[in-house]
Design a protein around this nucleic acid. Structure first.
Lengths: 172, 172
DNA sequence: AATGATATGTCAGCCTTGTTGACATATCTC
DNA sequence: GAGATATGTCAACAAGGCTGACATATCATT
């Protein structure tokens, strides 16, 4: 096991302390970092009358052209009713386009429009800037290591799926 | 199939391009990792009739005994009305105790009760288990590197404050 | 061709957790 | 005593989750 956590506060005596000492630092840093990370897009989304939910949908559709509703639900892990609310707005405002499936005409294949791709890219660049600022002046292996850490943080059940989605072949 | 990532490939090695290529992998991994990371506590909080908002309050009060309302608001960056809603429930259910300030009697100093500390610890251990599983078999320097990465992801404005809160002297 | 399964859409209502604005109270500081 | 400060509270609203029920179109199977 890697280095133990620096002793943060003295606990009541008795329990097996070392193995169970909470990693307060990584827990809290994760909270603060994620909060700031999503705050960048928020400001821009506001101008369009969109929220974080719209961002997620737009992002994954942009990244996976032809995504079906079912696949999107599986990625976001929300109900179809929740998805539909924001998806409808994205379609109405012409950021996403929904086409009938060719093989299976029950399906709806989702595509980002030109406008949609532009917004998605703008938001991704914002977040990338923050990531690059963090990585700059760090060890060259930092990016790969962080990537591996985050992947291992994910539920083992879904990690293969995520790996495919993030790194895998461009197909869905 | 249209490619959603116009600027990603097949470009001359211009400096601008490189700097602007979205780090889709780290962006998406961050999303999935954070989602699973907070899902562990969710299940337990449910049994108590609490939500994520309660968790955050309980966590930071537990970690910083004697925290004032103003300091807690500064950490969470929510309105006092939002805070009060969940804080009241935590106090009513005897997970947090509010004492009048000694130096300044207008202040309320917050403390986790025995029950509160137990729950906070239980949740922190859950998340720690996930973190340790991720770190196991990784390079020994992984923990430190991830910690530095997350800290650098935070807004420069607040990073000193966060650093103090996470690593700093136990006092508030 | 009929039937059941599947993919999606939609209505209605509820919950949590964020927001703003207004106002009340106690206490501190000058 | 006056004004600033720390907190509490009421009311209303919004975003984005949820459940349950039901509708429609299409596919797959018999």
């Amino acid at each position: 096991m890697p280095d133990a956590i620096p002793a943060l506060k003295s606990h009541q005596p008795g329990k097996d302390i070392l193995a169970e000492t909470p990693a307060y630092d990584l827990i809290e840093l994760f909270f603060f970092a994620y909060r700031d990370f999503v705050s960048d897009p928020d400001r821009i989304l506001d101008e369009y009358g969109f929220g974080r939910a719209h961002h997620r949908v737009l992002h994954f559709v942009g990244r996976n052209p032809g995504l079906t509703i079912a696949e999107l639900l599986d990625i976001l892990r929300i109900t179809k009713q929740s998805l539909n609310r924001v998806l409808k707005e994205l379609i109405d405002k012409d950021f996403i386009e929904s086409r009938m499936g060719t093989a299976d005409r029950r399906q709806r294949l989702l595509f980002a429009t030109e406008q949609g791709r532009e917004l998605a890219l703008k938001l991704a660049k914002l977040q990338t800037r923050r990531i690059m600022r963090a990585l700059s002046d760090m060890e060259p292996e930092a990016k790969d290591l962080v990537s591996r850490y985050l992947l291992r943080l994910i539920d083992p059940d879904s990690s293969a799926h995520v790996k495919h989605l993030v790194f895998g072949s461009e197909e869905t």
